[in-house]
Write a protein that binds this DNA or RNA. Structure first.
Length: 464
RNA sequence: GGCAGGGUGGCUCAGUGGUACGGCGGAGGAUUGCAAAUCCUUUAUUCGCGAGUUCGAUUCUCGCCCCUGCCUCCA
């Protein structure tokens, strides 16, 4: 059974074959660290975390590189506004970034280069382009890439240069030979961070950063390049033009793009201002709920963000945790003790779904099928340890139901002593068949957001 | 205007040339003192509209309508 991925470059699903046997090189465009990440960023991280995990599951040795853009206009602007040094800002945001993605259960990439650590590679790449006559110094002193020198320009995004220009919404910069030419090296203005270069002190353009970082870590040709759909043009198009021209390599062989997170059917973005940061959302919902919400939709489709959608994600996750809890408490699950998910435990339908371009909604359907079988078996005291192993293998791959069930249902500011006391009082009332008193206690706790569950072995509680 | 991707039950989301997966929600039942949790049953004669190909299309082809995105920084 082999993996098929949708390759944006070819606009179709293709059988995935790595460049080197058993190894995968993957580069994903990271974030520009000037502010907290929003849910849209979270989606990229979760989507490619799934890709990362599944590749590993298939036995690949994955070299996953994801960058930090830590030099950029917006960073300079924000640092100035806050009156702090640029590295203070970027370090603060990188720390926040880790908090956020860790909470979402994303594994760390193997390498996380920062743009500022790769100046020599960027400069070398620009020099190569200048030597080839593909780059030139404009009237303003910036070094620009002449897009018309690259025959395949527009191939990834399915655009041609003439169409782009006729529909262009950008004012034409007179110093450009062609309106679509983009900046490789920017001349420094006073007070801005700058690095020495053959063209004077300045800093790199955004696009060259990714070309240089990906190639320097993964080689001139590597397997996968990923990012949000909005990066396809011009960012990824420009990356291709730079890297393939400068190194003569093939650059990325498979391009994967995830869909957006929308709000009211409109793209969530900084510029529209209709965004929620990850930390805003996780104040109200457990981060794993956010992850679950994302897995419920195929990664290439748009994902509409709303409280109702998160509530539904929470309800479905609760269901899985409920089953996990029952299994943990059940003696008939004792033999299920695999340390790490093993492919042999994964149902073939699940593997098929994941191999079909990481179809997580389908994979979740398999998981819920197992969940139901598990509950059914538990209801009738059957040995469900095999199912339990499957269940954990699947949740392990998806990175959900990874928290302690006690913590899941009881986390937050609750006074458990108070609750336990009331539960004891209610049990006594029940024993003496004082159901009015018992129900009053249950109603009281319910009003406090606590739900009681009676079972033959006693009463347990959880947060609503 | 150019290009890309969509329109599937109350919501959400898969999928397939032979009447449609899962989740959330609703209804009924089992269980429970009553609930909760769990299980069972049920909830789309139908997959934007029209035409074509076909024994047969939601799935293929063409046309149309509508939505979103990209064409500027953006995940």
């Amino acid at each position: 059974m082999s993996l098929y991925v949708y390759n944006s470059l070819k606009r179709k699903k293709e059988r995935f074959e790595s460049l080197k046997p058993g190894k995968v090189g993957m580069y994903v465009c990271g974030v520009t660290v000037y502010d907290y990440c929003h849910v849209g960023h979270a989606r990229v991280m979760v989507v490619f975390d799934i890709v990362h995990r599944w590749m590993k599951q298939l036995g690949y040795d994955v070299d996953y590189v994801r960058n930090f853009t830590d030099v950029d206009d917006k960073i300079i602007k924000r640092a100035n506004e806050r009156g702090i040094a640029i590295d203070v800002l970027t370090n603060e945001m990188i720390a926040a970034f880790y908090e956020d993605i860790d909470s979402l259960g994303c594994l760390h990439p193997t390498r996380e280069p920062r743009a500022t650590e790769h100046m020599p590679e960027m400069i070398a790449m620009i020099e190569a382009l200048v030597e080839q006559g593909r780059a030139y110094v404009s009237g303003s002193g910036d070094v620009l890439y002449a897009v018309r020198t690259f025959d395949d320009y527009g191939k990834l995004s399915g655009k041609n240069i003439d169409d782009l220009e006729s529909g262009s919404r950008v004012d034409v910069d007179k110093s450009k030979r062609d309106p679509l030419d983009f900046v490789l090296w920017k001349m420094a203005k006073p007070g801005e961070p700058a690095w020495d270069s053959p063209w004077g002190a300045g800093r790199p353009g955004w696009h060259i950063e990714c070309s240089a970082m990906s190639c320097s870590h993964l080689g001139d040709t590597f397997d996968i390049h990923g990012g949000g759909m909005d990066l396809k043009f011009p960012h990824h198009e420009n990356e291709i033009a730079q890297a393939r021209a400068a190194n003569g390599g093939g650059f990325a062989r498979y391009w994967l793009h995830n869909g957006f997170v929308n709000i009211n059917a409109e793209k969530m973005s900084k510029s529209l201002g209709n965004f929620f940061t990850i930390r805003e959302v996780t104040e109200k919902y457990h981060p794993e709920v956010l992850r679950m919400f994302m897995l419920g939709t195929h990664y290439r489709s748009p994902l509409d963000f709303s409280d109702t959608a998160l509530d539904a994600a929470k309800a479905s996750l609760d269901r899985l945790y409920e089953t996990m809890k029952r299994c943990r408490e059940s003696e008939v699950c004792h033999s299920g003790n695999i340390a790490t998910p093993q492919s042999s435990y994964l149902p073939s339908a699940f593997t098929t779904a994941m191999n079909d371009d990481f179809n997580t909604p389908e994979a979740l359907a398999c998981l819920f099928d197992i969940c139901r079988l598990l509950n059914k078996g538990l209801d009738s005291d059957e040995d469900v340890s095999m199912l339990f192993d499957q269940f954990r293998a699947m949740t392990g791959v998806l990175g959900i139901v990874q928290h302690d069930t006690e913590a899941w249902f009881k986390s937050g500011d609750v006074d458990s002593e108070h609750i336990e006391a009331l539960i004891n009082e209610r049990s006594a009332a029940k024993k003496s068949r004082d159901f009015a008193r018992a129900d009053a206690i249950r109603d009281q706790l319910s009003a406090e957001g606590i739900i009681l569950e009676d079972s033959p072995t006693g009463t347990t509680w959880k947060k609503a």
